[in-house]
Amino acid sequence: MKLIRWTFSGRGRIRAYVDMFPNSTVHLSKIRGFYFVRHIQWDDWDPIVENCDLKEIERLVNEELDTIDAYNKRRNASS
């Protein structure tokens, strides 16, 4: 999976688009220094989004925005 593009949408939120779900918009919010998927505007033309896809999207966005360290600390704490 690859991040196609992302944009700020105000109030600490981001809209992201990935190659596996090109017609769907992923909305992410920032909390404690990293971004997490808030919801997805899913399109019928795209495949169904699974939990593993959500985690991969979060990882891609946090890598792109250089918040991956905070994200990894959060992931390790909940394991």
Rank of each mutant, 00 (worst) to 15 (best):
R75D: 01
D44W: 05
S79W: 00
E50R: 14
E50M: 15
R11S: 09
L3I: 07
R75S: 02
I40E: 01
W45C: 12
V18W: 00
M20V: 09
W42Q: 11
R38V: 03
R15M: 15
L65H: 01
N62Q: 08
D46R: 01
H39L: 07
W42F: 09
L65W: 02
G33V: 08
I31D: 12
R32W: 06
I4F: 06
E50G: 06
W42A: 06
R75L: 05
E58M: 05
R13N: 08
D44N: 13
L28P: 01
N23R: 15
A77I: 04
H27I: 14
P47C: 08
N76R: 08
G12E: 05
I31W: 11
S29C: 08
R11I: 06
H39N: 10
W6D: 04
K2Y: 07
P22W: 10
G12D: 07
R38S: 14
D66I: 05
H27Y: 13
M20P: 05
R59S: 07
G10I: 03
E64F: 06
R13Y: 08
D19A: 13
T67W: 01
K55M: 11
E63H: 06
R5P: 00
H39V: 03
I68S: 06
I40K: 01
L3T: 03
I31M: 13
D19N: 14
D66T: 09
S79C: 04
R32T: 12
K30T: 02
T25P: 01
S24F: 08
R15P: 00
D46M: 01
P22H: 08
N62T: 12
L60S: 09
D44T: 03
Y35D: 11
P22A: 07
R59E: 09
E64H: 07
F36R: 15
T67D: 02
K73A: 14
S78M: 04
I14E: 00
K30V: 02
T7Y: 07
K2G: 07
S78P: 00
K2H: 09
E63N: 05
N62I: 07
K73Q: 14
Y35I: 04
R5D: 07
M20N: 11
V37G: 01
R11T: 06
